[in-house]
């Protein structure tokens, strides 16, 4: 990765970002959380370009995970939770794929996954934790011995040992660090120098980006560097950690992006319906992924009235009174 801090070298289309920075078999960290700030533009582009055998790593993820799994481009997942809250308490395509044995899953907890990304971000080999003793989350391995110790998959899921600093031999859980190939982040702002600012909750995006070898950031707005440097306390990532910046208004749709738009209940409800049926889901992919060349075509298909419906009010960051049934 170059240490360039000139956005000219990094600003590119989603097509170029995926072509250059996402490879078959990559371990991909998904930023955002369930219904918020999913990097949907990149997820759809990955499907369009036909990447294969991806290994997704995340804490709790929803829409991007579900569509990638549904499109058949994912072989393995490490996660704590797969769903979109009330819209799909369990991700529909995720559930189908796991039950059909089409993907291999390794379950961790949210805290455990957070710590694993943090360890990766700090370049630590592993990290201790005190969560999950005697649970199946620690006792059962999802990945079999044929995968263990290969590529980026650690030789063990977790190790329970004695705290070496305690005379009482109290137990401690050691978790392997995560160092993904790529992190996919959706942010509100990227400066002309490549500085990233995420508004609202940052979830674990900052650690995920720092843990990854390559970082793709999609953003609502590209702004002058001076705008972000006036209040640097608010910034999330320095420019030199970012490889690709994709300007993508409404880039998290149908998930939310704080201060820009709410999640889209109509789309998420429609998705839940079509995802339940294999044929309907194929039609969905044809219409909403393969059938739209870029974000502009995608937004034209969503339509002005739905985009206006979810537009956030600046006072609260979401769309007050939005019909979310």
């Amino acid at each position: 990765m170059s240490a360039s801090i000139d956005l000219k070298d990094k600003l590119m289309s989603a097509e170029e970002a995926v072509r250059r920075f996402v490879k078959d078999g990559d371990m991909i960290a998904l930023g955002g959380f369930t219904v918020n700030r999913n990097a949907m533009v990149i997820a759809r582009e990955i499907i369009r370009q036909g990447r294969r055998e991806l290994h997704l790593v995340m804490h709790s993820h929803g829409q991007a995970m579900d569509i990638l799994v549904g499109a058949g481009v994912v072989s393995r997942l490490e996660l704590a939770y797969g769903g979109t809250g009330r819209f799909a308490p369990t991700g529909i395509r995720f559930r189908k794929a796991v039950q059909a044995g089409q993907v291999q899953v390794e379950d961790y907890s949210n805290f455990q996954m957070s710590l694993r990304f943090l360890a990766g971000a700090l370049n630590l080999p592993f990290i201790p934790s005190c969560s999950g003793f005697e649970s199946d989350v620690l006792n059962r391995e999802g990945f079999g011995p044929e995968l263990r110790g290969r590529g980026r998959i650690p030789s063990r899921k977790a190790i329970i040992t004695d705290n070496p600093f305690s005379p009482d031999r109290e137990p401690v859980v050691l978790l392997p660090a995560l160092a993904p190939d790529v992190a996919l982040i959706h942010a509100q702002f990227v400066g002309e120098d490549g500085t990233v600012r995420i508004k609202g909750l940052t979830f674990l995006d900052i650690e995920q980006a720092k843990a990854a070898s390559r970082v793709i950031v999609t953003c609502e707005e590209v702004v002058p560097s001076t705008f972000l440097r006036q209040d640097p306390d608010q910034n999330s990532l320095p420019p030199f950690l970012v490889d690709a910046v994709v300007l993508a208004p409404f880039g998290a749709h149908p998930t939310a992006c704080h201060y820009f738009y709410d999640y889209d209940p109509r789309h998420l409800n429609m998705y839940r319906q079509v995802a339940g049926d294999d044929n309907d889901f194929r039609t969905y992919l044809k219409e909403w992924v393969y059938g739209v060349a870029d974000q502009e075509a995608y937004l034209a298909k969503v339509g002005v009235s739905d985009l206006m419906r979810i537009k956030a009010n600046s006072s609260v960051g979401y769309a007050p009174g939005l019909d979310r049934r």
């Binding site: 939770y81 379950d107 949210n110 805290f111 455990q112 649970s135």
Partner: peptide, 8 residues
């Protein structure tokens, strides 16, 4: 969906 943060 999985344990999410419930295990923690």
């Amino acid at each position: 969906p999985g344990c999410g943060g419930a295990c923690d």
